[in-house]
Nucleic acid binder design. Sequence first.
DNA 1: GCCACGGTTCGGCCTGGACCGAACTTTGCC
DNA 2: GGCAAAGTTCGGTCCAGGCCGAACCGTGGC
Lengths: 225, 225
Amino acid sequence: MTGSPNIARLAAPLADPARARMVMLLMDGRAWTVTELGQATGLTKASASEHAARLLDAGLLTAKRQGRHKYLRLASPAVAHLIETMMALAAPDQPQSLGPRDPALREARLCYNHLAGALGVQLYASLSTRGFLAHTPGGLGLTARGHAFCQSFGLTEADLAPARAPLCRDCLDWSERQSHLGGRLGRLLLARMESQDWLRRRDGSRALTVTPVGRAAIAQVFPPC
Amino acid sequence: MTGSPNIARLAAPLADPARARMVMLLMDGRAWTVTELGQATGLTKASASEHAARLLDAGLLTAKRQGRHKYLRLASPAVAHLIETMMALAAPDQPQSLGPRDPALREARLCYNHLAGALGVQLYASLSTRGFLAHTPGGLGLTARGHAFCQSFGLTEADLAPARAPLCRDCLDWSERQSHLGGRLGRLLLARMESQDWLRRRDGSRALTVTPVGRAAIAQVFPPC
DNA sequence: GCCACGGTTCGGCCTGGACCGAACTTTGCC
DNA sequence: GGCAAAGTTCGGTCCAGGCCGAACCGTGGC
């Protein structure tokens, strides 16, 4: 029992409502400054700074100084995955299809750095049923046909090359309770859709706007099955 | 932000070392009494009882009274999955191949109610590469060939019928950092292997003993790929 | 009925830590 | 250099909650 992983050390930083809110804000995948997080959570700079230090210390966030700003991000996709898992479990226990809460958030949103929500689940399902994704011993992977598809979608050979970070990752969507695509490929696909103006980020929200052109294009490229 | 899931409420019960230890003990999938948990964690009955109440209150555990005993279990596979995810992230950050800590635990152990460790990962990989598992929109599923295989292994039609709880579930192994099989099927396969005396539980540990006969049989039925 | 045992509740002690205002440091801007 | 803004540190207050021993309640065994 001595050498076992210390869960409490990981849970304690997340056990405070203010820090939990910070982490949820950071789930948009962007970098926030300490004061921004303070304002968003209704705390003074002092408190926000202390909370940020605690999250950094636990390895849940990384910081990067730029001039007099300090930008905070989630430390890794693995951390984002943990948060998403917790959100899925902590989510008010259905049926909340009745209360749409924030319909935009349910339809399409950022999950750290990839697409989540109904649209993210649709994309995953589309890729999966067309045989582009396969579950291999090493985790979720791209099939040869999936590889070709991604290239036709504008990704490069280099994008899809093996690397330390997993290319595909299975991420449980907290609103849909189904898988969507994370990992490097999730990030790349999102970036490509943004650069083609199919999706646009909004300020102050994780929700993504689907442009009319994007809606049509997505339905064609990632047809629901 | 108001209607978003409350992570802190989920993290707080896990933020205490004693409660974290309790939850880890319960990862063996068995039911423990309050005093057993108290003894195992070095606390008095009073403290153990308070901790248990807190975990119950958070919905992480369920309790069942039997006579003057109160048996505690993890509330659901989803909870077990969360704990496993946290263990994977909290695990001392490699390379721990050097320190085998507990080799038996690494080779084969219980993860809530299914097989984990190197053997669990091998089993998953074997099923996966032989095309018995497939990733569908609704999550991990059993293919037609996988279905046939399971029946040949002694599972019944009823076992494999659709139900509310997912049949297959992808569970990240904290020691191997790869997937192993959870869900109802994970539980059923483990039960079958136990009933054939391929695996045996040990007292006071999550580690499983692989019998000589089991070792041979597993290599044949679930050949490493 | 009596006792033993599992579990809970209570009171008291004490520590951790959440929060703030204020002072301080660093950086960028002019 | 002077000023403003970002962030940290410090001192102080306050409360949640972790821990225990002791008293208490229910159940089972005799």
